[in-house]
Measured scan of single mutants.
Amino acid sequence: IEEVKKIVSEIQSKQLTRITINGNTYQVNSPEELVEYVRKVFS
């Protein structure tokens, strides 16, 4: 979970619009959307 928080804060600070998780690239339009992807991947 700490690793996830680190990734999320990194993305928020860079305002990235794409994230790659487990080889899948997602278009991310908002931090909320990012959190949803993270929940799916780590749930």
Rank of each mutant, 00 (worst) to 15 (best):
Y26L: 11
I19Q: 00
S9L: 14
K5F: 13
T25N: 05
V8P: 02
E33N: 05
Y37E: 06
T25M: 13
N24D: 06
E36H: 10
T25Y: 08
F42N: 00
E2Y: 08
I1C: 15
T25G: 02
P31S: 09
R18Y: 08
S30R: 05
I21D: 00
L16S: 01
V38N: 00
V41Y: 13
Q15A: 10
S30A: 04
E2T: 08
R18G: 04
F42S: 02
E33Y: 03
I19L: 06
S9M: 14
N29A: 10
R18P: 00
Q15Y: 06
L16N: 01
S13T: 11
V35K: 02
R18S: 12
Y37K: 09
V41H: 13
S13Q: 12
V28M: 15
Q12M: 15
T20L: 06
E3G: 07
I19G: 02
E3K: 11
E33F: 04
Y37L: 15
V41D: 01
Q12T: 10
I7T: 03
Q27C: 14
N29P: 06
E2F: 11
I11M: 03
V28D: 11
V8L: 13
V41E: 06
K40G: 06
T17Q: 03
V4W: 15
T25H: 11
E10M: 13
K14E: 04
E32N: 07
S9I: 12
K6A: 11
T20Q: 05
R39I: 13
Q27A: 11
E32F: 06
E10A: 07
Y26T: 04
K40E: 08
Q12G: 04
V28H: 15
V4L: 15
I21E: 00
Y26Q: 02
S30C: 06
F42Y: 11
G23E: 03
L34W: 04
S9Y: 13
Q27K: 07
E36F: 07
V41C: 14
V8I: 15
Q15R: 13
E2R: 07
L34M: 02
L16P: 02
V41R: 04
I19N: 00
T17C: 13
R39Y: 13
Y26H: 05
K14C: 13
E10Q: 08
K6W: 13
K40N: 09
L16H: 03
E2M: 11
Q27Y: 08
K14T: 07
V35G: 02
K6D: 07
V41T: 06
E32P: 03
S13Y: 08
S43N: 11
E33V: 04
E2D: 12
R18K: 11
T20S: 06
Q12Y: 15
V8W: 05
I11H: 01
P31H: 05
E36Y: 06
Q27L: 08
E36Q: 07
K14I: 04
Q15H: 10
S43Y: 12
I11N: 01
P31N: 02
V35M: 09
L34F: 02
E36D: 10
I11F: 02
V4S: 04
I7D: 04
Y26A: 03
E32Y: 09
V35L: 09
Q12N: 07
P31Y: 09
Y37V: 15
G23R: 02
I19K: 01
Q27H: 08
P31D: 03
V41F: 14
Y26G: 00
K6T: 07
R18Q: 10
E32C: 07
K5M: 14
V4Y: 15
E33S: 03
Q12K: 11
G23D: 09
S30Q: 03
K5C: 14
G23K: 03
S9E: 14
V28K: 15
N24V: 15
K5S: 13
S13M: 11
E10V: 10
F42A: 01
S43E: 12
T20M: 08
N22H: 09
S30F: 06
K40H: 10
S43C: 14
T25Q: 06
Q27S: 13
L34H: 00
K6R: 13
V38T: 01
I19Y: 09
N24Y: 14
N24A: 11
N24G: 03
E3I: 14
V41L: 15
V38S: 00
R39H: 09
Q15C: 11
T20R: 05
Y37C: 14
I1Y: 13
R18E: 09
E10L: 13
T17I: 11
E32W: 09
V35S: 04
P31E: 02
G23L: 03
R39T: 10
T25A: 05
R18D: 02
N29S: 13
N29E: 10
E10W: 13
E3Q: 12
Q12R: 15
G23N: 05
G23H: 04
K40S: 10
I7L: 13
N22I: 04
S30K: 04
F42Q: 01
N24L: 15
I19D: 00
L16V: 05
E33P: 00
I7W: 12
K5V: 11
E33H: 03
S30G: 03
V35H: 01
T25V: 12
S30E: 03
Y37W: 13
E2W: 11
I19M: 06
E36L: 06
L34Q: 00
I7A: 04
S9A: 14
T17D: 05
F42V: 02
Q15F: 08
G23I: 03
R18C: 14
E10Y: 13
E33G: 07
N29R: 08
V41S: 04
F42R: 01
T20F: 06
V8F: 07
T25C: 14
Q15E: 05
K14F: 05
R39Q: 10
V35T: 05
K40T: 07
I21H: 02
T20H: 05
S43G: 13
V28C: 15
Y26E: 01
E33Q: 07
E32Q: 09
E3R: 13
E33I: 03
N22Q: 07
S13R: 12
Q12S: 06
K40M: 11
N22C: 14
L16K: 05
Q27F: 14
T25S: 09
V35Q: 04
F42I: 04
E36I: 06
T17E: 01
K6H: 10
S13P: 01
